Amino acid sequence: MLFQTHAFKPAHAVTLLRSGTEYFSRLQQLIDNAQHSIHLQVYIFDLDTTGNIILAKLKQAVQRGIMVYLVVDGYASPHFTLAVLASIRKSGISVKQFAPLHYKSLKIGRRLHHKIVLIDDRFALIGGINIADKYSGYNNTQTWLDVAVEIQGEACLDVMAICELIWPKRIRKKWKKNVTFPISQKENYQVCVTQNDWWRRKIEISKTYRDMIRSSQSELIILASYFLPGFRKRLLLKKASERGVNIAIILGGMSDIPLIKPAMHYLYSVLCVNNISIYEWTQSVLHGKMAISDKQLTTIGSYNLNALSDYGSLELNVNIESAEFAQTASSFLQKIIAEGCVKINPQLYQHKPYSVLHAYRFVCFQILRLSLFILFALMRRDRMSRKHI
């Protein structure tokens, strides 16, 4: 049985969106059609062509009388200087930096990693897509492969509640919440919004992934970036394969973080020996995060299978219980495999335990694990110190 803190709720529409023109055209359309409120919370907001287009759309919305609330991460969105923030506020947009860095602070661990667009409390875009040219493909930039999902329905109220946590009470008082949803003749979708925020004792997405792997009976497909699952998830994958589950994992053939590739390759030998098929996307950087279990349950969002998403960042995923949507998502992943993936040959990763290459990959893996452990320790220390204030 799938672990859930929040209940599944009916959805009138659920749509899978790919990074590039598909996602950003829909985003601009939603902003243009907003009636009373826009919430945008994102990890990376670059003030390049894409960022300036979206920012201009938000300013136009304010001029139409729409309330606009923008939150960017204080570490990953360095373009938002004090001068830029002042200029945006002057335009009428309520803007906030999440956990801005300070020279006296070591609180780099807890970051706003989720990506939320909420329009009129009725339409929500949730996934891994940030606001930057590398996600839109503008200016002939190579588009990173990423995914998001648009949901319409009661689950948007759960998204609204999550948006509230970022803002102080004096701001939240202005928000209207008398939202009703039309009765749809077709509600084949059941959706559930899940969070990871160790600071608030929420590890719902981590538990969802573990339960999906544990309960899969026939097929499990995972699209992942920065793939460094802990021992428990690796053991669950091994056991799932042993009971006959067909497991395919799509990973990136290139990465924006140098140590990630050799660290992931260290895990390839563990996965391949357990008959897990690995595919590498070679056309661009892979940044998407999605999993499909038994052609019935799909999860999409910002969560990466690594310790930072487990314990150091605010993450948001949407779980969709629908055979129809799972088929759509599965067809999309099969298209990705055919379009630009190569299948990993297991024999290439059957290294002797003490080979130089194996040792190098093991060291990279341990360096990343140690780095994540230190970040988590700093965050935990800060949490404990606040507890005693």
Rank of each mutant, 00 (worst) to 15 (best):
S284Q: 10
K57A: 11
V363Q: 10
M290P: 03
W167S: 09
L17T: 02
V62E: 02
L220R: 00
C364L: 07
I54N: 02
C156G: 02
L112Q: 09
L297G: 00
W144D: 06
L2E: 05
Q4Y: 09
P353L: 13
A99M: 13
G301D: 09
R170P: 01
N139L: 11
L223A: 02
E150T: 05
K295D: 14
E154H: 07
S19Q: 08
N178F: 05
T194P: 01
A34Y: 02
S218W: 05
E315V: 04
V245C: 04
V159W: 00
L165T: 15
D382E: 15
T328H: 04
F123R: 03
I108N: 08
N188G: 09
I278F: 05
A148R: 00
K289E: 14
T194H: 04
G301H: 09
L357V: 14
Q283P: 01
K169E: 13
A359I: 12
I222Y: 05
R234F: 04
I126A: 01
I344K: 01
G51W: 01
V84M: 08
K96M: 12
E280D: 12
D32L: 11
K174P: 00
D294C: 07
Q350D: 14
K207N: 11
A155T: 10
S25R: 14
Q60N: 15
H358A: 14
F325T: 01
G51T: 11
R380T: 09
M264Y: 04
I222T: 08
G244Q: 11
F325Y: 14
S385D: 12
G244Y: 10
Y69A: 01
S216R: 04
V149E: 01
Y303H: 12
L223V: 08
K59Y: 05
A11H: 07
Y43H: 08
S277P: 03
Q4F: 10
V191S: 01
I278H: 08
A124H: 02
L235R: 11
G65A: 10
L112R: 05
Q327E: 15
L157S: 10
R383E: 08
L375V: 04
I320A: 03
S218T: 14
K104V: 08
V273H: 11
Y138C: 09
A307N: 13
I108K: 12
K387L: 13
Q28A: 07
D133V: 03
W167K: 06
S25E: 12
D211N: 15
Y360Q: 10
L101E: 13
S269A: 14
E321N: 15
E150A: 05
L101C: 12
V270H: 13
R64P: 09
